[in-house]
Design a binder for these strands. Structure first.
Length: 460
RNA sequence: GGCGCCAUAACCAAGCGGUAAGGUAGAGGUCUGCAAAACCUUCAUCUCCGGUUCAAAUCCGGAUGGCGCCUCCA
């Protein structure tokens, strides 16, 4: 498989560093509020990548962090800790907040059929590993102390800015954040912060009580679970300039080698062709989709239909289209399942190859979806194509085997009574009465669908 | 102000020099008392202007338009 590496700006063949297992780390959520569907796009990307690697025969070990401490309101060490701020506003402890939103997060990724990484690790449970790095970076001269913390000295790391093509001088001129005068360089960043007494989350260190900087958690935990050097690191494009740049600086300085071989970044989800925004109310949650009657998996389908490295535009019209496509695809799968006709073996091979080739080329799942549809729509319905499609679904994760659009729902007695009357009217070929009853039922919020096997009543 | 991305049918979206995948909507059809659903068929020369080439949506230059980051965010 070839993937685009943000670090080298090239597509590269992915070969496990240890010749056995791809070790990948993905930046996870900061659990201070609900994750919106934009966040989910990145986690879906991680999932598509892992499933594809598995499909193509790679062994994979994946790790994702849960950030429950240290992530300040600004990525570049300004402002309050996000967890603390939320805790303060809601009169709960940071631990309560973390617990609530971690559960919500796991629930959401479950609904989106995102496999859990092999290791899900919490920042607050790895303070020792972080302090170990901080201590050594300080001792090795990569960091210095100020009145409020320990800062990484980017002048000691010549490659700083390589990932994002940073023009450090230009950055300084454009910086809008207040300048911390104790920092030697504006881009120097905190790896450890000294804690004021009232700070709830704090741990003992050689500089007194404190808490970790945000970026250090990923360096410490990835190293703990994946080793000094590993294959893949994923995240959203927003992390390229600060978070990942800092991670590279810390990790590489710590092990004196290149820690991560390949960096992959997922583009943003936009809404109505613009930035997703909490203030405009477009930072939708998975539960918002459900409230409008969409399956979370319809959103998954939507994300499968565009390349991870391209911005995807979310609209309600779009999710509607995705849901319909998903329904139809499932119907087609069912049709193949129930058929005993023979499919052309060569054709099956062709589809299989097309699908693999698409995945192998930098995870081109939208292209692979073309093959999925061509296979599904093939004029001969065959159980072998059913098997093929279910094989593809190992990557897609759409649960194509379930019946959609025919879900049994709780029907109120009043409605089913009316439906009974309508059934009777139809038996009598009293079409006028039957149509009136259908209208009545419709006005009560239910929809009647006549099928060869009888009436189907659905909500909406 | 600095950096970068994108521009393909009504909408979403592949395409990476050899003559436009796929999905949704629309249109036509099969089925049905009707409707819906389902299924089948059908639907674009790639923002504009130059250039390179036997050949360009694909490469180069320019114009116009949209978006993102640099500030919280995946």
């Amino acid at each position: 498989m070839k993937v685009y590496n943000t670090l080298t700006k090239n597509k590269e063949e992915l070969i496990p560093l240890d010749n056995k297992t791809i070790r990948m780390y993905s930046c996870g959520p900061t659990v201070y509020s609900y994750a919106h569907i934009g966040n989910m796009k990145a986690f879906l990307f991680m999932d598509f990548l892992k499933r594809s690697l598995n499909y193509l025969g790679y062994k994979v070990k994946s790790v994702m962090n849960i950030t429950d401490v240290g992530h300040l309101v600004s990525d570049s060490d300004e402002g309050e800790d996000k967890m603390l701020k939320t805790a303060k506003n809601s009169n709960m402890t940071p631990w309560d907040i973390a617990s609530i939103y971690t559960d919500a997060f796991l629930n959401d990724i479950g609904k989106l059929n995102i496999h859990r990484p092999n290791v899900l690790c919490k920042a607050s449970e790895h303070i020792n590993e972080m302090l170990d790095m901080v201590n050594r970076l300080y001792d090795d001269g990569y960091a210095y102390e100020t009145s409020d913390g320990i800062y990484f000295d980017i002048s000691k790391f010549p490659d700083y800015g390589k990932l994002s093509n940073l023009d450090l001088e230009g950055q300084i001129a454009g910086a809008r954040v207040a300048i911390n005068t104790e920092k030697k360089h504006p881009a120097d960043f905190a790896i450890w912060k000294k804690a004021p007494k009232e700070h709830i989350m704090q741990w003992e260190s050689r500089w007194g009580m404190g808490y970790p900087g945000w970026h250090i958690e990923c360096s410490a935990m990835s190293r703990k679970y994946l080793g000094d050097q590993f294959d893949l690191h994923t995240g959203g494009v927003d992390h390229i300039p600060i978070h990942h740049e800092n991670e590279i600086a810390q990790s590489n300085a710590y092990i004196k080698k290149q820690a991560v071989k390949c960096w992959m970044h997922c583009e943003f989800l936009q809404v109505d062709n613009g930035k997703m925004s909490k203030s405009i109310g477009t930072a939708y949650l998975v539960s918002d989709l459900e409230k409008k009657g969409f399956e979370p998996l319809a959103f998954r389908y939507m994300c499968l239909n565009a390349h991870y490295s391209k911005k995807l535009n979310f609209t309600w019209e779009g999710i509607e289209a995705a849901q319909k496509s998903l329904n139809r695809l499932s119907n087609l799968v069912a049709a193949h399942k129930d058929s005993d006709a023979e499919a052309d073996s060569d054709l099956i091979e062709t589809y299989k190859n097309e699908f693999r080739n698409a995945l192998e080329d930098d995870l081109n799942i939208p292209l692979a979806m073309g093959t999925v549809w061509n296979a599904a729509r093939s004029s001969v319905k065959s159980f072998r194509i059913y098997q093929l499609l279910m094989d593809f679904d190992k990557v897609l994760g759409l649960n194509l085997d379930i019946k959609r659009n025919e879900a049994e729902e709780e029907i109120p007695e009043e409605i089913s009574l009316l439906a009974q009357q309508r059934l009777q009217a139809r038996k009598n070929k009293d079409w006028k009465k039957s149509d009136e009853l259908r209208d009545t039922i419709k006005s009560l919020g239910y929809f009647i669908n006549d099928t060869p096997s009888g009436q189907i009543i659905k909500k909406g």
